[in-house]
C-alpha cells in the first residue's frame, strides 16, 4: 500500500522536537521506529500531516541502573532491551516480554518507547509496564512530567501523552528479593500478536504466594491490570505439581484462584478468538505464568 503524502521532520534536539510537535499539534505523529505506525500509514488508516522522526535524537537510546529502578530510554530497541544485562538482572520481566515481540527484524528496529506510546493492548510491553507499576517520563516545551503506568493507557491506541509531548523513557521499579517473573504469550504464529498474554510477577514465601502482580495483554481496549486475580492469589499455597506439570489428585488452589483472571476484562472479538475463549485463555495462561514465575 502507499501512504498519503505527509511532511517529514527529523529534529536534531529534544528541544527542537518539542517545539516542532507543539507547533504541529494533533496533526503530527511521532515516528520512533515505525513498526506500528508505518503499517497504519500504508493502509491509509492514519493520515498525519507530519511525521516527526525522533530517530536521531541523542540520549534516548540507553538503559541505566538508577538504584531503585531501571531507566529505559524510549528509543532503545527491543533487541537492545532484551540483551541488556541491567534489564535482565534487575527487571527480567521486561526482557522476557521484549523477547516475544514480533520477530528479530522488528525487534532490531522497533523501540521500547514507541511500542508503549502506541498503546496497543495487543502489544506485549504495556501489560508488563502495568504489572510492574512503571513510571512514564514525558517532556514537552513546558517541561517534564511523570505518568504512572496505571494512568498511561487511556483507551485503544490512546496513551496519556498530550500533543507536543515526547516520551523520554520509562522507569521500571526493581521489585527486590523473592520475586519471580514470567511472560506467557499465546499466539498463533511466531510473529503474530498475542491472542492473550499474561505478565506475571510473583513473590512466594515458604511455598505460599505473598504477592502477585498480573498484567493482561489483549483482554480489552487497554492493557489490563488484573487486580481480582492478584487478590485471589494472595496467600495461596499451590499444590505440588506431579510429573506432568499438572496438579495431581486433589484440586489445586492455585487453579481456583486463577479462575479470577478474566474478572473485569472486556476482551475483543477478532478472527483469532472470541471473548469467551479469551477469558478462558486468561485463566489458563495466568495459571501457567504464575507457575512459571516460581509459584
Amino acid at each position: 500500500m502507499i501512504p498519503a503524502a505527509f511532511d517529514y521532520i527529523r529534529p536534531a534536539s529534544l528541544d527542537e522536537a518539542c517545539h516542532v510537535l507543539d507547533d504541529a499539534g494533533e496533526e503530527a505523529k511521532v515516528l520512533a521506529g515505525g513498526q506500528s505506525l508505518l503499517p497504519l500509514l500504508r493502509l491509509r488508516l492514519a493520515y498525519p500531516a507530519a511525521l516527526v522522526d525522533l530517530g536521531r535524537l541523542p540520549g534516548l537510546r540507553r538503559v541505566e541502573d538508577r538504584g531503585d529502578h531501571v531507566f529505559i530510554g524510549a528509543l532503545t530497541t527491543h533487541d537492545e532491551v532484551l540483551r541488556s544485562p541491567v534489564v535482565r538482572g534487575h527487571v527480567p520481566l521486561v526482557a522476557l516480554a521484549a523477547a516475544t515481540v514480533a520477530d528479530p527484524a522488528v525487534r532490531h528496529r522497533g523501540t521500547f518507547g514507541g511500542s508503549l506510546a502506541h498503546a496497543d493492548p495487543a502489544g506485549d510491553l504495556p501489560a508488563v509496564a502495568l504489572a510492574l507499576d512503571c513510571v512514564f517520563v514525558a517532556r514537552s516545551a513546558g517541561g517534564e512530567r511523570e505518568i504512572p503506568a496505571a494512568e498511561f493507557f487511556v483507551d485503544y491506541l490512546e496513551p496519556a501523552l498530550r500533543p507536543g509531548e515526547v516520551l523520554l523513557g520509562v522507569r521500571v521499579p526493581k521489585l527486590g528479593e523473592g520475586w519471580g517473573f514470567h511472560y506467557e504469550k499465546f499466539h498463533r504464529t511466531a510473529q503474530a500478536w498475542a491472542v492473550v498474554g499474561v505478565a506475571a510477577a510473583v513473590r512466594t514465601v515458604g511455598g505460599s504466594i505473598e504477592e502477585a502482580r498480573i498484567g493482561l495483554t489483549n483482554m480489552g481496549p487497554t492493557p489490563v491490570r488484573a487486580r481480582a486475580v492478584e487478590a485471589a492469589l494472595r496467600g495461596v499455597t499451590p499444590a505440588r505439581p506431579n510429573g506432568n506439570g499438572a496438579a495431581g489428585g486433589s484440586r489445586d488452589p492455585l487453579r481456583d484462584a486463577c479462575g479470577e483472571a478474566a474478572e473485569g476484562t472486556a476482551p475483543p472479538v477478532d478472527l483469532h478468538a472470541r471473548p469467551d475463549y479469551r477469558r478462558h485463555l486468561a485463566r489458563v495462561l495466568t495459571y501457567r505464568a504464575v507457575r512459571a514465575a516460581g509459584a
Binding site: 503499517p39 520477530d103 498463533r188 504464529t189 511466531a190 510473529q191 503474530a192 478472527l271
Partner: peptide
C-alpha cells in the same frame, strides 16, 4: 474480506 493483511491471514514461517 476480513483477511486482507498478513496479520489476519496467517502464513506460518519456519519458526512455526
Amino acid at each position: 474480506l476480513l483477511t486482507t493483511t498478513m496479520a489476519d491471514y496467517l502464513i506460518p514461517s519456519a519458526a512455526d
